[in-house]
Simulated scan of single mutants.
Amino acid sequence: MNYIIKHISTRDTYLIRHPVLRSGKPIESCVFDGDDLNTTFHLGIYTENRLVGVCSFFKNKNQLLPEAFQYQLRGMAILNEYQNIGLGKLILNYGENLLKEQNIQTIWCNARENAESFYKKMDYKIIGESFNIKNIGLHYVMHKTLKYKNPDIQGF
């Protein structure tokens, strides 16, 4: 199968966020603070013109991390029938490369307990203690240091 990754609208993320991350909850639960900021971007992965996965990147600093230029990964989701075939790795690598081109130092996320092993395989490390997000479950703050493409330029 061929896959295409491209920038998508906030609204398009709901098509995947809702069934994967917010199943049984109102569609409004898929709206994240900062979704429409000009520093936020959303990616979608398509196969045969069908959107099957999404992830969003927010300019957001986590106080547990010292680096000045940080982005938060949020709302990463692949439709169930397309999971475990490498699409999460493809879309996350694509987003990380976009951040590297902008010389972002660190990417971090609030990883669900059942996604911890995926992020570890992608070289993310846990920082701090686990915590619970009401009505969603146990999470870990995980982060990864990105290597600058151009060390003379820093951040967006």
Score class of each variant (00 low, 15 high):
22 R>G: 00
115 A>Y: 00
149 K>P: 00
51 L>E: 04
93 N>E: 13
99 L>D: 08
48 E>I: 04
30 C>L: 07
145 T>G: 04
81 E>N: 12
114 N>D: 15
117 S>T: 13
140 Y>A: 09
70 Q>M: 04
35 D>K: 01
98 L>G: 03
38 N>T: 10
113 E>D: 15
28 E>S: 15
42 H>V: 14
132 N>L: 10
109 C>Y: 09
124 Y>M: 04
94 Y>F: 11
46 Y>G: 08
128 G>P: 03
42 H>D: 11
38 N>C: 05
43 L>M: 02
94 Y>K: 09
125 K>L: 14
24 G>N: 03
99 L>G: 10
85 I>T: 10
148 Y>G: 06
99 L>K: 11
138 L>Q: 13
144 K>Q: 10
99 L>P: 13
20 V>N: 06
148 Y>F: 13
135 N>K: 12
34 G>S: 08
39 T>A: 10
123 D>Y: 10
139 H>N: 11
25 K>N: 03
93 N>W: 01
34 G>V: 07
118 F>D: 09
60 N>I: 00
91 I>E: 01
53 G>D: 03
56 S>L: 08
71 Y>W: 07
47 T>N: 11
149 K>Q: 11
25 K>T: 07
122 M>P: 08
50 R>W: 00
135 N>R: 04
86 G>K: 10
107 I>S: 07
142 M>W: 10
69 F>K: 14
63 Q>A: 13
31 V>Q: 11
25 K>D: 06
153 I>K: 15
48 E>P: 03
85 I>K: 13
107 I>K: 04
139 H>P: 13
68 A>K: 15
99 L>C: 10
93 N>Y: 05
58 F>V: 06
131 F>Y: 11
152 D>G: 02
150 N>H: 12
112 R>E: 06
125 K>N: 12
118 F>N: 12
34 G>M: 03
83 Q>N: 08
83 Q>G: 07
64 L>T: 00
28 E>P: 13
26 P>T: 00
45 I>P: 02
82 Y>K: 05
27 I>R: 06
49 N>K: 12
118 F>L: 07
138 L>R: 14
122 M>F: 02
47 T>D: 00
48 E>Y: 02
148 Y>T: 05
33 D>C: 03
76 M>R: 03
126 I>Q: 09
70 Q>C: 05
38 N>Y: 04
153 I>H: 08
140 Y>T: 05
37 L>P: 13
129 E>M: 05
114 N>S: 14
150 N>V: 01
135 N>F: 02
132 N>T: 08
125 K>F: 11
146 L>E: 05
81 E>W: 00
61 K>Q: 07
